[in-house]
Design a protein around this nucleic acid. Structure first.
Length: 447
RNA sequence: CGGGGUAUAGCGCAGCCCGGUAGCGCGGAAGUUUUGGGUACUUCAGGUCGCAGGUUCGAAUCCUGCUGCCCCGACCA
C-alpha cells in the first residue's frame, strides 16, 4: 500500500478528551474517530488491526470446535421477556420502537437469541455438544462511556455459546474455551491471566475473567508472579481429551489470581511475598458456565437416549476485539507511539522513501514493497513528499513492527536502514538482507 | 444517576470579568528554502463564536432555557 493513496489521518496534537494512552494514540494514529459519546468509527488502520484480532480469535475458536454464525444487532423485545431479562436489564439496554410500534432493542448480548435458534432446530441428544459463536457489534448504554474504545457503548464482541447434555459435559465445553482463550491472547502477544470472577447479570456459578496487566488498567488485581512465565497450550492440543484440558485449566487456576471484587486477603497472604503481584488489569475476556438459566425458561430441550427430555446446559464465552485493540496498545507503546506485536500489526513493515520522487530510491522502494508482498507480508510504503523527520515520526506513531529506511546516503553504499520498532535497534543492511531478515522475523513471531 | 467543567477554524487554545462586529499556534493550499529524526520564512484559504430566546443602538462577551462533550464518583465486557 502506498501511503500517498491511503487514508491515514494522523493528528499531530492530542485531542483533549483523550485521557489514557491508548485512546490518545488511537486518535493520533488515525485508527478511530468518535462520532458520539462511546461510539466510534474505525478508520482504515484501526480496521486493519481489528481484522487481524478477529482472524486470530476466529482461528482459535474453530480450532476448539466452535462454529461461526452471525446474529443480528437488533432483536425483538419478546425474546427477552421469555428469559425475564427484558425488565431486569435496566437502562443499559437501548430500547427502540419500529414503525409498527413493535418493541425492539439493540442487543447487549445474545444468549436469548442463540437459545431460540438452538431450540428451534436441535431436538436430539445426538446433535450435541454444540458451540456456536459470532463476532458482532453490541450496544450497552453505559452511563459514562470513557477511555475511547476501552469502555465504549458500541463495541465489537466475540461471543460463543455452548450447549451440552449435562453439567459435566458443559464443564468440558467450558474448558475448551478456557484453553482456546489462553492460546488466543498469547497469539496477540499478550499475557492474559484467568481470574475467578463474579458472573454478574449473565448469571451462573463458574466464571473466569481473562485479565492483562497494564498500568492504566481499570481494576485492581492480585496474582501469583508465576503466571507471567506460563507457556500457552500448544496448537496441536486435543480438544476432545477432557482430562488433558482439565489438567491445563487446573494448572492455570491453581495459583492465586483475583480481581479486587473477589480478592481474598488471607489467600493472597499465603502466597510467598516475593511472588505476589498487585497490579492493575484490563479485562479482555470473560467466560461463564450457567447451566439451565436460559434453557429452562426458554424450553431449550432435546430427547435423550431413553426418550426423556433433557434441558440443555449452557455456557457463554466473550472476548471484546475492539477493547483488545486498545488493550494491546496499553501493553505496548512508548513516548513516540504505538508498538504493535507482529501478529496484529496493520502492516508488518513500513518503508520510508526519504527522497520521494527520486528515481533511485523510488525504484528500490518499489522492489522492496514487491518482495515483502510476495513473502506474504503487509507493507506500507511512505512515498509522500515529506521531510525525513515527518516520515520517521509517522512510522513510529503508527507502530509498525519493522521500518525500512531508503535514502540517498545509504543507497550510495548499497544499504538501507532496518529499524525494529520495539527496542529501536537499527542496522544497515543490503536490501536483500533487509528483506530476508524481516520476513524471517515476522514469520517467527507469527508462529 | 449525583458532583464539577466545557462548547470560538480540521486539532490545541486566547478573547468573555470591563459589550463595539474574531485572533494565535499546529494542520491545509501556493511559493522560496531545507534534505537522514515533525526545517525556516512569505502569502493564501478556512469560523451562522453549540442551539433557541431575551437585554441593548450594538452580544463570542450580559441574562434565561436547551443540547453536546469531558472529568470525579457510583456502574460496567
Amino acid at each position: 500500500m502506498r501511503l500517498s493513496r491511503y487514508f491515514l489521518p494522523i493528528l499531530r496534537e492530542t485531542p483533549k478528551e483523550a485521557e489514557i494512552v491508548s485512546h490518545r494514540l488511537m486518535l493520533r494514529a488515525g485508527l478511530i474517530r468518535q462520532e458520539a459519546a462511546g461510539i466510534y468509527a474505525w478508520l482504515p488502520l484501526g480496521l486493519g488491526v481489528l481484522n487481524k484480532i478477529n482472524a486470530i480469535i476466529r482461528e482459535e475458536q474453530i480450532r476448539a470446535g466452535a462454529i461461526e454464525v452471525l446474529m443480528p444487532t437488533i432483536q425483538p423485545a419478546d425474546l427477552w421477556r421469555e428469559s425475564g431479562r427484558y425488565d431486569a436489564y435496566g437502562k443499559e439496554m437501548l430500547r427502540i420502537v419500529d414503525r409498527h410500534d413493535r418493541e425492539m432493542l439493540y442487543g447487549p448480548t445474545n444468549e436469548e437469541m442463540i437459545t431460540e435458534i438452538v431450540r428451534a432446530y436441535v431436538r436430539s441428544y445426538k446433535d450435541l455438544p454444540l458451540n456456536l459463536f459470532h463476532i458482532q457489534w453490541k450496544f450497552r448504554d453505559e452511563v459514562r462511556p470513557r477511555f475511547g474504545v476501552m469502555r465504549s457503548r458500541e463495541f465489537l464482541m466475540k461471543d460463543a455459546y455452548s450447549f451440552d447434555l449435562s453439567a459435566e459435559a458443559g464443564r468440558h465445553s467450558y474448558n475448551k474455551m478456557f484453553v482456546a482463550y489462553l492460546r488466543t491472547f498469547a497469539r496477540m502477544g499478550l499475557t492474559a491471566i484467568p481470574m475467578a470472577a463474579e458472573s454478574g447479570p449473565i448469571g451462573g456459578n463458574l466464571s473466569h475473567e481473562f485479565i492483562i496487566l497494564a498500568e492504566t488498567g481499570e481494576s485492581e488485581v492480585f496474582c501469583h508472579k508465576d503466571f507471567l512465565r506460563f507457556e500457552p497450550p500448544p496448537a496441536n492440543i486435543d480438544f476432545d481429551d477432557a482430562a488433558a484440558l482439565e489438567a491445563i485449566v487446573g494448572e492455570w487456576t491453581g495459583l492465586y489470581a483475583a480481581t479486587s471484587e473477589m480478592h481474598d486477603e488471607k489467600a493472597y497472604g499465603a502466597v510467598p511475598e516475593a511472588s505476589r503481584v498487585a497490579a492493575r488489569g484490563i479485562e479482555v475476556g470473560h467466560i461463564f458456565y450457567f447451566g439451565t438459566k436460559y434453557s429452562e425458561p426458554m424450553r431449550a430441550v432435546v430427547s435423550g437416549p431413553d426418550g426423556k427430555e433433557i434441558v440443555l446446559s449452557m455456557g457463554s464465552y466473550g472476548i471484546g476485539p475492539s477493547r483488545l485493540a486498545a488493550a494491546i496498545i496499553e501493553a505496548g507503546h512508548d513516548e513516540n507511539g504505538i508498538i504493535w506485536p507482529e501478529q496484529v500489526a496493520p502492516f508488518h513493515v513500513g518503508i520510508a522513501d526519504l527522497k520521494a520522487g527520486d528515481p533511485a530510491t523510488g525504484k528500490l522502494c518499489a522492489e522492496l514493497e514487491q518482495q515483502f508482498e510476495n513473502a506474504g507480508l503487509d507493507v506500507l510504503l511512505d512515498d509522500r513528499d515529506e521531510r525525513p523527520g515527518a516520515k520517521f515520526a509517522t512510522l513510529d506513531l503508527i507502530g509498525l513492527p519493522w521500518q525500512v529506511v531508503v535514502g540517498p546516503k545509504g543507497l550510495a553504499e548499497g544499504k538501507v536502514e532496518v529499524k525494529q520498532r520495539r527496542g529501536g535497534a537499527r542496522e544497515q543492511l543490503s536490501p536483500q538482507d533487509a528483506v530476508s531478515h524481516i520476513v524471517a522475523a515476522v514469520k517467527a513471531a507469527r508462529g
